[in-house]
Write a protein that binds this DNA or RNA. Structure first.
Lengths: 356, 356
DNA sequence: CTGAAAGCGCTTACAG
DNA sequence: CTGAAAGCGCTTACAG
């Protein structure tokens, strides 16, 4: 539409307004130093012709640099946060030619103080935008307020925090991710079976918000369909298979009616490895996230289904939205919910090479 | 890596080689009219410094226009092919600033001759690349050969054809999409249930390749798990509910053990509408594609699961790959298989606004 | 075959 | 407050 105005340039505007290109440029960018009169004239024409700047020319001519910071948990290869990091890198490399650089700041995901330390000197450097993994709500809120004061835009990933001024959130609706896991499990269970919910204990870390929300959604669905079985709980340790095996042996011996299992974070391989070792093929296990240790067990048939949340896209879209906001004045939706993907053994392979 | 060479410009190369920028430009683009000696010199330096052209400057300076043609079936709002069309449009609008235009050519998907007619005068205009929906294999092969002769690159979407020189294919592995449907259905069926496979008859159109492959995958999975039920078949008409209802009434009356249904193209709403009208809630129905009439029934619980194949991305990636090939000399993978998505009532809504 | 110059649409000092 | 000019990195005639 408006094809006729599609290649109006700044010089054209300048001529129509009877001013120089410098003046037009100043009003376009609100750089001031323009008389009220000229400003009005130029703005009127800008609107009339629906002026669309040529972005390539702009970025060619401009020496302006943008610097973004992404604050995310550190990770070992194959862990969940690696995926978010990859998405960030992809966006960064795509936007490189627009003079955008992205620095990643890592913190220990089990240590609230580490987050605060990482963040403390953030504003010493030049920062034009921030992406934040919202694991520690209180700390994130403090940081958000500081960014507000400095008028630096920021986006959240992983889980949302209400009441803040984030430019946007990219992540899933954890509650529904719990509902879906429940559906996947109960569809494959007779209604007299029991379900085991395992929690993974980690030094000094209580359940994440995300985990809690998934659990709520899960339990809600069971109630709604009138699931008749019992729910058992067990606490496992992330790095202590001996302990875990003993606990699980006891539990399954005492409750042979347990035919389903669920873990609300990305570590369902812990339970999976036990089931595999014991050859307990009749227990259906559902978990979260396409990390290597999980996908391996999914393809072997030990895990029945995985629920995934496109972490790569969270990182990618997060950085992209900062770019679009700053460079192109486009504002994203405030809440952007990723698809909740259902992975079975049969469709797994097409996801593995298609993460973005 | 090689940060030190990251902003080497043509003038730098020119100086290093002791020639003018014009000469450097000629060797970069193989425009000829350069002495063998200078060519060698320049090429050596180009390689040494890992020269990366500034794409924005290039496209700013260049008046070169690219014109792509996308040949796809015509569609009414809400039909399957609309999604592919949307993906094409999205790519086109993103690439507009690179002086790329995309024209869509539509043909009647039930009429082989219509395809040939549409395509006949394709080469009269200027065409730099073509995207083809491969419904009619023979016609597509003829067209492909003509494009080969004219050295015009082309990509396939929807289903692949082997033995041609397509730059790339974007679509799914239909056979596995059949396997997955079988898994989704049988997971929810007792092994003594029967399954109804409905075929949709359309004037003068036999089953698509895609439909056949899905069916093969479906049946193979049933065999592999030793499914004990019977398979029933019925032919329905796309626009004749009266006929369909009579046929289905007979069938279900005669075979009350039918507890599962499948249709191998995007029209499973036809069977869905029948089940809904008859209130037959115990029959599980699995189908394909996120078109409106299907998603409506999925959210109502009439359809149990939909298998989807990211048509928007097929269109989008197809056009993008032509751009990347021509503008940036990047060659795509020859076969690009989209994820096969599993949609249940519970995760549907997050897909509807996230098609790309 | 080769090079100097103009131009793509915008931004950035700079002089006034 | 305003405008003329140079420059971003590349391509495109044009003259030789």
């Amino acid at each position: 539409m408006d094809k006729e105005f599609s290649n109006i340039r700044i010089v054209d505007i300048a001529k129509m307004a009877g001013v120089s290109v410098g003046t037009v440029d100043r009003v376009i960018h609100n750089r001031g130093r323009v008389s009220e009169e000229n400003k009005k004239k130029v703005q009127a024409i800008l609107e009339m012709v629906h002026y669309q700047p040529n972005l390539m020319a702009r970025s060619l001519a401009s020496k302006k640099q943008y610097h973004f910071v992404a604050i995310i948990p550190s990770f070992a290869h194959g862990e969940y946060w690696e995926a978010i990091s990859e998405g960030i890198d992809k966006a960064a490399s795509e936007m490189e030619s627009y003079n955008i650089t992205v620095t990643k700041l890592f913190f220990d995901q089990y240590n609230n103080k580490a987050f605060d330390d990482t963040v403390r000197n953030l504003l010493d450097g030049k920062v034009d935008g921030v992406l934040i993994a919202t694991l520690f709500a209180d700390s994130v809120i403090r940081l958000s307020q500081e960014l507000d004061n400095n008028e630096i835009p920021y986006v959240y990933v992983d889980s949302n925090i209400k009441g803040q001024h984030q430019l946007a959130y990219f992540g899933t609706e954890s509650y529904d991710a719990g509902v879906i896991a429940a559906r996947l499990l109960t569809d494959r269970l007779s209604s007299s079976s029991d379900i085991l919910m395992a929690r993974i204990i980690h030094s000094g870390k209580n359940d994440s918000n995300q985990g809690k929300n998934r659990r709520e959604g899960f339990c809600h669905y069971l109630k709604e369909i009138g699931f008749g079985g019992k729910l058992h709980e067990v606490e496992l340790k992330i790095n202590d298979s001996v302990y875990n095996f003993i606990k699980l042996d006891e539990l399954f011996e005492a409750n042979p009616s347990i035919k389903g299992g669920i873990i609300f974070n990305s570590t369902c391989y812990i339970l999976g490895n036990y089931l595999k070792a014991r050859g307990m093929k009749s227990v259906k296990l559902v978990g979260y996230d396409l990390i290597e240790r999980n996908t391996q067990l999914l393809s072997e048939g030990v895990i029945t289904a995985l629920v995934a949340q496109r972490p790569e896209r969270q990182g990618y879209d997060g950085i992209k939205s900062l770019c679009n906001h700053l460079l192109f004045k486009q504002n994203p939706e405030k809440v952007n919910l990723m698809p909740i993907d259902i992975l079975l053994k049969e469709n797994l392979k097409y996801y593995l090479n298609n993460k973005l």
